[in-house]
Nucleic acid binder design. Structure first.
Ligand SMILES: [Mn+2]
Ligand SMILES: [Mn+2]
Ligand SMILES: [Zn+2]
Ligand SMILES: [Zn+2]
Lengths: 143, 143
DNA sequence: CTTTGAATTGAGAATGCTTGTCATTCCGTA
DNA sequence: TACGGAATGACAAGCATTCTCAATTCAAAG
């Protein structure tokens, strides 16, 4: 039950938070904008405000439930935190996002930070290219 | 002379463009926000508008003279394109930016894109950490 | 099952960065 | 030197996100 996830994250169990968690779990593997989450909940007949969606996403992020990414194109995207760290490759035509993890790259990053005298906290690695999906073509927005 | 750089980039030689190129060359190695560039030119007594700074930076970028980066914190930063590609490590306390290049990482990126069926166009890799500079402390803005 | 105070919510205003508009000015060629 | 299109500056507008605040909801206690 998602209620438990919320409680153990130190968050009060409320309608908006439950609905958002559900949605994020049902679209796992996807990377959604706040706007897309808002729109889907509204279309599903829920009563929620965009400000709440942003607020709750920030809380989820602070609680480690969700990760925020800044790919190209203004809007941040969010994904449910499941499993271990990974990086992304994004199709510049259709917007498709694939995930990958490469231990060699991670290791080099740690070595580089150390050599430059930085205590490494975090990193973002995103590749941009054209995918080879049959239906790949320029996209308008998220559903 | 910078006039030549502009002409060979297919850009008309104008005051604002010359001043901006000069500034970028004199602060080479730095990563400046549009606002910072604007402020420095105004302080130097130049007459220029912020909109022009943004416009010209976009033109410089299209011409390959300048690279735009989106580190954390809203504002994009720009740097004169000199020499080969590199990635960045940013201090989350003082904002200092160091550059690095790692052929092993670049190679792995190409391999990953190929394996996932993407024609790789581009990538962004930014490490975030705490630097070990003596005077490192939380920063307010750029000069 | 009520009470109750603090946390949460939704609507709309506000913010910060960036881009668009448009009348005026400037550049470069004829 | 004159001309027409490109570039400029001031300001308004756009966009994603955050803030404000009165109304609502949660959960702990009684
Ligand atoms: Mn992901
Ligand atoms: Mn750089
Ligand atoms: Zn695609
Ligand atoms: Zn530092």
């Amino acid at each position: 039950m998602e209620s438990q996830d919320l409680r153990s994250a130190g968050l009060k169990v409320t309608g908006p938070r439950l609905k958002m968690l559900e949605l994020l779990e049902n679209t796992h593997g996807r990377h959604l904008t706040a706007e897309a989450i808002y729109r889907q909940l509204i279309e599903a007949g829920e009563e929620i405000g965009l400000a709440t969606v942003y607020r709750v996403l920030t809380q989820f992020e602070a609680a480690g439930l969700v990760t925020r990414h800044h790919f190209e194109g203004g809007q941040a995207v969010f994904e449910l935190e499941r499993g271990p760290h990974h990086d992304h490759i994004v199709c510049i035509r259709c917007g498709r996002v694939e995930e990958f993890y490469d231990e060699a790259i991670e290791k080099r990053q740690r070595a580089i930070a150390e050599k430059l005298g930085f205590k490494l906290h975090d990193h973002t690695l995103t590749l941009y290219g054209e995918c080879s999906r049959p239906g790949c073509q320029r996209q308008n927005s998220e559903s």
